[in-house]
Simulated scan of single mutants.
Amino acid sequence: MKRYVISQWINNEAILKGQAEELATNDKMAVFLLKGENILRSSQLEESHPAFLFLSKGKLSFKLNEDHIEIHAPAHLDFILIHPWSKMKTSKDFEGYFIMTEKSFFISISESIRSKFVGLIYQYAHRPFVPLNEQVVQRISLYINILINIITQPEYHFRNEALENMLRMFQLEIWNTVFNLYKNENTDEQHLWNDILSHFLHLVRTNCRFHHDVKWYATQLCVSSDALSAKTRRMYDKSASQIIDEYLLVEAKACLNNPIYSIQNVAELLSFSDQAAFYKFFKRCSGISPSQFKKEKKQENLNSKRND
């Protein structure tokens, strides 16, 4: 892991003071032992590596979705970036293991077990932290020690495979705790998916100019691409990709209707790789080319002025 990514989360001054001890680092994962007051910073990159914290002593407080949260050890926290974390403070007796993973590595592991807990993942994403009992603490401590040993052991021939399995075990341990936490709550899955789909439509309206792929939206919503498309088909009789295309086409037509924008300008505004890719998208979704659309709109505007 690159240090500049880690420094987005951990107070640089704390690193210099020795309050942040680097236990193990490679290109897939970094493990830090954090101790002391205000060692974590709230600033973060929009696109960052997945990070989580095993809080073993003390407490951590922060604001999440305008709510003031205070977490006491022992606990686990997932730093899910779809929500802003701010005013992060740790107590003087704070101690915890901070683990950050390379994004594609983490996603590949999560995808293999996501179906096991898809019904709760969106609910958990809004409050991504759980208290831990003594038995779970013992097992997680063991997993962390094994992770560190695998990363630091020289000439470990199956390092990536072993890290995948241990990280998968770690996640399953946390999700078992999440299931136990929510088992007595009456979770209405249909109501939950209604909330997810509502959030999806909002994301598409506000981000379709910049993100065209279903996978990006599914990641923000903490669901799989297949599950999201299955639900949109059931609810709207359209795939998630079709819905994105519809909103993007509306944006494209609005831009093309503006005489100050060339077709190349519109392709750039809508984040297409080049004009040819935009041309192909527009022709597929509207049945005519962008140039033909501009020509027809220009003629319509002239006719409208004549009639006035």
Rank of each mutant, 00 (worst) to 15 (best):
A20H: 01
K63M: 15
P50G: 06
E22G: 08
M29E: 04
K28R: 13
V31W: 01
E21S: 13
A75W: 00
L53N: 01
A75D: 02
G36M: 05
K63Q: 14
G36I: 04
L33Q: 06
E47W: 08
E66I: 05
L34W: 03
L45S: 14
E66L: 15
F52T: 06
K57N: 03
L23V: 00
E21G: 06
T25F: 07
A51Y: 03
G36P: 01
H49R: 10
A75I: 08
E47V: 14
Q44F: 07
I39N: 00
E66Q: 14
A73W: 09
A51L: 09
E37C: 10
A73S: 15
L64P: 02
D27K: 15
A24K: 07
E47D: 15
A24F: 11
Q44V: 10
Q44H: 12
F32E: 05
E47K: 14
K63C: 14
S43H: 13
L60I: 14
P74E: 08
L33C: 01
L40P: 03
H76Q: 10
Q19G: 03
Q19R: 10
S48V: 09
A20F: 05
F54V: 02
K28T: 10
H49A: 02
G36W: 03
F62A: 04
I71K: 06
L33H: 09
N65E: 07
S61W: 12
L53V: 04
N38E: 00
S48R: 02
Q19I: 03
S42V: 02
L34Y: 04
F52W: 08
E22F: 11
E37M: 09
I69H: 08
D67Q: 14
A20Q: 01
K59A: 13
K63T: 15
P50R: 01
M29V: 15
S56A: 09
A75V: 09
G58E: 12
N38I: 05
S56H: 10
E21V: 12
K63S: 08
E70V: 15
E22C: 14
K35V: 01
F52Q: 02
T25S: 12
H49C: 10
E46H: 14
I71L: 10
E66M: 14
L23R: 06
L40C: 09
N65W: 09
E22H: 10
L45T: 03
H72P: 03
F54H: 04
T25K: 12
S56G: 04
E46F: 13
L40I: 11
H76T: 04
N38M: 04
A24P: 05
K35R: 14
T25W: 08
H76D: 06
D67V: 13
S43W: 09
E22P: 11
P50T: 07
K57C: 02
K28M: 08
A51R: 10
Q19M: 05
F62S: 01
S42Q: 06
N26F: 11
S56Y: 08
N26K: 12
A30F: 08
S42D: 12
H49Q: 14
K28F: 09
N38S: 06
A20W: 00
S48W: 06
R41K: 13
E66R: 15
D27S: 13
E21M: 11
L23H: 06
E47A: 11
D67S: 13
